[in-house]
Design a binder for these strands. Structure first.
Length: 299
DNA sequence: TGCCAGGAATTGC
DNA sequence: GCAATTCATGGC
């Protein structure tokens, strides 16, 4: 059976407006177009580019394809993507209960109630974005990503708006690092990203392979990739695999947020941050995500 | 100006 | 193991 829309049932707590606010946080984002009550995204389903509009219903979400009729297989693909994107399979009520008794997190789960950990279901996108974001300002990272996507990503224009999908590893694997230099990638970032693309194209690395590993083995496999250290491995487990226990303990934004909420003027030590990780045990990734969210203010 | 950004690899001890 | 150095660029 073919159709042009389908619904996804969502369990509370879920607040689509909170998620939309998060998706609107940067003006330079190219991977989706977030509006007042919907977000549009170009889904690359095995090479077929499908534009989907995601909106809220009384039961959860509806994904409408204004220009396309999609197959059952394509629907399943998009549903899986959206479930991972908005972390819809997570028992966030348990996080909220834990946070109730934590004086640091309590105000955050109140303010952002129903916000899910918004991720990057595409492994190549998650890894590439993490590498791009290493040790540069966030605004410059968005600029680099936009140039990268607009240079190498598939796109489709609908009603005068151009929508972009993330570049495929097959495309990037063929590049030489020198080709990314004009986009202002450092040679090293270029090498890392092309290397990761090549591992994926060679079949040595895939989301499915990583998912089949136990958590510690997945972490080790990620660390074995050139350009991936502790921070990136934790970030990818958190944003691509929805691992609620992933904890990028050395993250600069995490430190900044903790410092702010604690009213500290001095730097937190690594041991102190480690203790916060233990305090958030089981929900390290959610605590981190909400702390990051608190840095943006009202988007 | 100088220092640091949602780090990681390499080198030297 | 672990500290120092290098990588590129923008923003404050």
């Amino acid at each position: 059976m073919s159709r042009s829309s389908f619904e996804i049932h969502v369990t509370a707590p879920f607040d689509f407006q909170q998620c939309l606010q998060f998706l609107r946080r940067s003006n330079d984002e190219v991977m989706h177009v977030a509006r007042e009550t919907s977000v549009s995204k170009l889904f690359d389903v095995d090479g077929r580019l499908l534009l989907g509009d995601i909106m809220e219903t009384s039961q959860g979400l509806v994904i409408v394809f204004p220009e396309d009729i999609i197959s059952k297989t394509e629907q399943e693909h998009v549903e899986r993507y959206v479930r991972d994107w908005f972390d819809l399979d997570q028992d966030v009520a348990a996080f909220a209960r834990m946070a109730e008794t934590d004086e640091l997190l309590h105000p955050l789960v109140r303010e952002y109630e129903g916000l899910r950990l918004i991720g990057f279901p595409d492994l190549f996108e998650a890894l590439t974005w993490a590498v791009i974001g290493q040790q540069i300002t966030l605004s410059f990272a968005y600029t680099l990503k936009r140039r990268f996507v607009e240079q190498y990503g598939p796109s489709r224009e609908v009603d005068g708006v151009t929508y972009w999908a993330f570049p495929n590893p097959e495309t990037i694997a063929l590049l030489d690092p020198s080709e990314l230099r004009p986009l202002q990638f450092s040679t090293r970032k270029a090498e890392y990203i092309i290397g990761i693309a090549q591992e994926m194209t060679d079949g040595r690395l895939s989301k499915q392979q990583l998912r089949s590993e136990p958590p510690d083995m997945m972490h080790e496999r990620l660390l074995s990739l050139r350009g991936v250290g502790e921070w990136t491995a934790a970030y990818v487990r958190m944003k691509c695999f929805q691992d609620p226990t992933a904890f990028p303990a050395a993250d600069a934004g995490l430190h900044q947020a903790l410092k702010h909420h604690l009213g500290r003027s001095d730097k937190l030590t690594a041991d102190e941050v480690r203790l916060y990780g233990e305090r958030f045990s089981g929900w390290e990734a959610y605590a981190t995500f909400y702390l990051w969210r608190s840095l943006y203010g009202d988007v």
